[in-house]
Write a protein that binds this DNA or RNA. Structure first.
Lengths: 215, 215
DNA sequence: ACCTGAACACCGTTCAAGT
DNA sequence: ACCTGAACACCGTTCAAGT
């Protein structure tokens, strides 16, 4: 219940130490005690800067959001969307252990609102109707974050990798499509190309709304 | 290194106890010790059935996948996709604490492969080219899971909720789009309608590929 | 075949105190 | 204003043993 004021002076230093530990040893190894140790502090010293561990994780999410690109508003709206999407994927690949936090924690920070506003503006500039902007932003952001997380968490690669082994044990009656698609499922996927193709498909959706009837 | 064989007899009983604890007290409260306690066992008894806690979490993911609908193959391929997507969202809303595990853990289980195969088959039946099926499946699944997780984890609702408070402190120069969209951002969103609209948009993408040139 | 007991090396967090 | 020390109530997991 106490509303004790948090110090801000060393907040970013602490967040960066936490990110470094997660990068080096994984998210499971990220503990208040280890963050403190890395900074030469007692665990309790951190509680002057963050209310608890969840609060520190939210700090990490905020930090990740500051790493997103802020494209020149003079660019074409499509380019702004593409640059932001690619930037999000880059952040994921450079911070694989902590990036999935973006999906687990609500994040209503200042950084989050600013990032969302940039997407809203790009969609408005493209001519998306006012009442559709928020939904399309969520559609695109949800997919882009989901793709980036799937990539770094192994949801994509592990599943394509292990398919052959599974298929041997599962027979064509149980897996009709997999057996027909065998030629296309085995090769290692070019994730850069897949992400670009997905972005192009999302732009198809957006542009399908532009010329449409007013009501 | 030891490849000690796991017992299977009580695996599903243990998974269901774990799911029940997560539902009642949240994912953070899900511990090996509490699962054991609920079953009247010692924590160590669980290690005869699961290699470790991660293995038990994978068991939960497998359980969630068995809850997905298995639509009648005689239905139109579009209806099969829609039913599967809605079913996934239903599973998320009835298991909010554990559903996000689907995105965090690779999951190459038998159940996962079967679920993916059904989507592949629907896309093939719709006429999607063989070399596009796997990508489109990942595109659709990533979005559907992402939407369902965002909804149950609060990523969607909390952010729309807190916007007004944020906006008061952030001024129209910093948030141009939010201020222009004020009328559309405040009201509580109808998530059922948003999900249906998103599904319709994804079907636009898929159908845009059907009549296309062969090469 | 299935389960227990004791132990180890950890956690997050509170409370009171120190400079 | 900033930090520490001791303590509490937990964790996952190993190893050896019990029936």
């Amino acid at each position: 219940v106490s509303v004790r004021k948090l110090k801000t002076t060393r907040q970013s230093e602490i967040v960066e130490a936490a990110v470094a530990i997660a990068r080096e040893k994984g998210l499971d190894a990220l503990s208040m005690r280890r963050v403190a140790e890395r900074l030469g502090l007692t665990p309790m010293a951190l509680y002057g800067y963050f209310r608890n561990k969840d609060d520190l994780l939210d700090g990490i999410v905020g930090y990740l959001l500051t790493l997103l690109p802020d494209p020149d508003p003079a660019l074409d709206w499509r380019d702004r969307l593409r640059l932001t999407a690619r930037g999000a994927r880059d952040v994921a690949r450079s911070h694989p252990a902590v990036f999935p936090l973006l999906f687990a924690r609500p994040s209503v920070s200042r950084e989050a609102v600013l990032a969302v506003d940039r997407i809203h503006q790009a969609l408005l500039d493209g001519g998306v109707a006012d009442d559709q902007v928020a939904r399309i932003e969520r559609l695109v952001s949800t997919f882009v974050l989901g793709f980036a997380i799937s990539e770094v968490s192994g949801r994509f690669s592990d599943s394509t990798l292990n398919l052959r082994g599974r298929r041997a044990r599962l027979g064509p009656e149980e897996l009709p499509a997999h057996h027909r698609l065998a030629a296309w499922l085995d090769p290692e996927v070019d994730w850069d190309a897949e992400f670009e193709a997905d972005l192009a498909d999302l732009l198809i959706v957006i542009e399908s709304k532009l010329g449409g009837a007013k009501e």
